[in-house]
């Protein structure tokens, strides 16, 4: 166990998460893992980690961390305005979507910015916590996985798989990540859409919902048009997947997220497509959600296209300086604004 970072202040809700805990839902264990899978993947990719490495998921306010290893390379993914404030440096602010190497004794404050509900901080080589049921993800409700099964607290010592990060050029993306905060969330109707009136389906697809501030890793509660059941709103318990939209007796939908229980007794009017779960996850309390129905085949096609887009984004990760000396970009700039002599 290699101590890497000491928690000076934990932030509002900071947990260790990875790709999630698969294979135990049949015994009641939720998948957990990063709410925004794309943010998680991109933060790990920036610091060069293999898929599956554990990182910090940060919700609400950011933590303050002191480097206790020789050095550590970190990257934050979240709001465009978010970043790391590094005490005592001239260029103290390192924006999200870039790597930075921190030396022993340096203190980084994570500033979240206002766009993304959840942000991800990855370290090179990944965080080292014991595997619990094949995953490093924290499941706070049953207090297992991650760091002692709970959100971070001041004084916690975080371990990593490397004591030192080699000095090299820092990297960033070719284009910033688009959080798509206005994009409709695409759903496939069902599995229990037949428990609802035709008007309820119309309301779901035409209406606009606000995510309640009471939303968390278990579920996003929505306020907006009520969805009428045909008759009963209790069903004999049935399985739940991430993105299930269940409608209890209140007639207001709840979208079940990473830490939701594995079974439930309310009918599910629709299910968010897998590609749009990260798009939904980065919106938090107060933001608007509109839904759009697609077919399962569309959902599968969108999922493949989204995977290709992410793969391309990761392939295009490049040294920061290559942006500054991009001849092509310079050339275009010359043509457009004509300030620089084109013969240079």
């Amino acid at each position: 166990m290699i101590p890497v970072l000491k928690v000076i202040a934990p932030g509002f809700h900071t947990t260790i998460q990875d790709e999630g805990r698969r294979g135990f839902q049949h015994v009641g264990v939720p998948v957990s893992g990063a709410l925004d899978r794309n943010g998680y993947l991109l933060s790990n990719a920036l610091v060069g980690n293999a898929p599956g490495a554990a990182c910090l998921e940060i919700i609400g306010t950011g933590p303050e961390l002191e480097v206790v290893g020789a050095s550590v390379r970190v990257a934050l993914i979240g709001s465009a305005g978010g970043g790391l404030e590094i005490a005592g440096r001239d260029d103290a602010f390192v924006g999200s979507g870039r790597t930075v190497r921190l030396a022993r004794g340096e203190i980084a404050r994570v500033r979240l910015g206002g766009d993304a509900f959840c942000s991800y901080l990855a370290i090179e080589a990944g965080f080292d916590v014991p595997l619990c049921l094949n995953s490093r993800s924290t499941y706070t409700r049953a207090r297992f996985g991650g760091f002692s099964g709970r959100p971070l607290q001041g004084g916690d010592m975080l371990h990593g798989f490397a004591d030192d990060a080699a000095s090299r050029e820092e990297v960033t993306f070719s284009a910033p990540r688009d959080l798509a905060l206005d994009q409709p969330i695409r759903v496939v109707l069902g599995p229990q859409d037949d428990y609802f009136t035709a008007l309820a389906i119309e309301e779901l697809l035409q209406g606009s919902y606000i995510i309640s501030p009471a939303s968390d890793r278990m579920g996003f509660r929505l306020a907006g048009p009520e969805l009428e059941h045909k008759s009963d709103y209790n069903i004999v318990s049935d399985s739940i997947v991430g993105g299930s939209i269940q409608v209890p007796g209140s007639k207001l939908p709840i979208i079940l997220m990473a830490d939701a229980q594995t079974t439930g007794g309310y009918p599910k009017i629709a299910t968010v497509i897998s590609a749009d779960l990260p798009v939904l996850a980065v919106r938090g309390g107060g933001r608007t959600v509109r839904f759009q129905a697609v077919s399962r085949e569309d959902a599968e096609r969108i999922s493949r296209a989204e995977h290709q887009r992410l793969t391309k984004m990761i392939q295009d990760i490049r040294p920061e300086s290559s942006k500054l000396i991009s001849l092509e970009a310079l050339y275009h700039q010359n043509l457009i604004d004509g300030v620089v002599d084109a013969k240079v």
């Binding site: 759903v187 069902g190 599995p191 229990q192 399985s239 993105g243 299910t271 497509i273 897998s274 599968e300």
Partner: peptide
């Protein structure tokens, strides 16, 4: 039944 592109439900 369909749970989007995440699962099939045999009821």
């Amino acid at each position: 039944l369909k749970a989007a592109d995440s699962a099939l439900v045999f009821e």
